[in-house]
Design a protein around this nucleic acid. Structure first.
Length: 259
DNA sequence: ATGGCCTGATCTTCAGGA
């Protein structure tokens, strides 16, 4: 089974590339983030024509997550139990489903903006709620993984130049500790292969020639429990999908499972 | 060949992204 995660930065803007990529990559299950659409306006019919079912949690302009699968889609859960609100709003940042016997949770972790910003405290609370929501399935036997845009680079090597991130979000100790706590529930960081250069970055800023200069970050993660991790045959970042006109600023992370 | 931001909405400017 081939499972992937991809922050598409608008499903509407990315639809032609998404449909082509699903076919060319042979992906069975895809976790999506930053749909930037409502559940009602998600292009479920176009995906159905390719043989994929969809589970979507979106409210409009911001955020939005989904799971699409051609190997079944059951037991959909939208949101996080006891997830924090931001400015009184329960934002669509998580959706879980069971696809072909594998439980997946697609997540779009809050950005945090600045360390002093209320969004940063929200980010830490959201990650804590994610750990609680995942605790049971992480420790259980059936294959389970949390996949998505974590907006945290777990290690200094996961950004192109740690010196450029002095005082920034995404690399701070509390954010990394929150991801470490999530791993502590029984999950393993499935680090993908880069297809070029020496580090598997998954995001490159649109600005200032970020991609051509390989100024990237590894912030899209696949965290799998023991059963999931043991079944991993291969994992890589499909950087080809970051190329050219009409690309998302994130590349898909692809995992092949012996399952 | 990978090229100096992109997306959607409050829509000709702006918030948000990371």
């Amino acid at each position: 089974m081939r499972i992937a995660t991809w922050n598409v930065n608008s499903i509407t803007a990315r639809l032609p590339r998404l449909l082509a990529w699903l076919e060319s990559s042979g992906t069975d299950v895809l976790c999506l983030q930053e749909l930037k659409c409502s559940t009602e306006s998600f292009p479920a019919e176009a995906l159905r024509e390719l043989g994929y079912e969809s589970a979507v949690h979106g409210t409009g302009r911001w955020n939005g997550v989904g799971v699409v699968s051609r190997v079944g889609l059951e037991d959909v859960v939208r949101g996080l139990p006891d997830g924090p609100l931001y400015e009184g709003v329960d934002e669509p940042r998580a959706v879980a489903a069971t696809c072909g016997g594998v439980r997946v949770r697609s997540v779009y972790v809050p950005n945090g903006r600045e360390r002093e910003h209320p969004h940063y405290a929200y980010k830490l609370s959201w990650l804590a709620a994610l750990a609680e929501a995942s605790r049971e399935e992480a420790a259980a036997d059936p294959p389970f993984a949390v996949l998505g845009d974590f907006n945290v680079a777990p290690w200094d090597e996961d950004v192109w130049d740690i010196a450029a991130f002095d005082g920034a979000t995404h690399v701070s100790e509390p954010e990394r500790a929150a991801v470490e706590d999530l791993l502590g529930t029984g999950l393993h960081d499935v680090v993908p292969r880069p297809l070029k250069y020496d580090h598997p970055f998954t995001y490159w800023d649109y600005r200032q020639l970020g991609f051509p200069k390989n100024r990237g970050m590894r912030i899209d993660l696949v965290l799998g429990n023991d059963t999931f991790h043991s079944a991993v045959k291969d994992a890589y970042v499909d950087r080809e999908e970051r190329k050219g006109k009409g690309a998302s600023d994130h590349a898909p992370v692809v995992v092949d499972l012996d399952h």
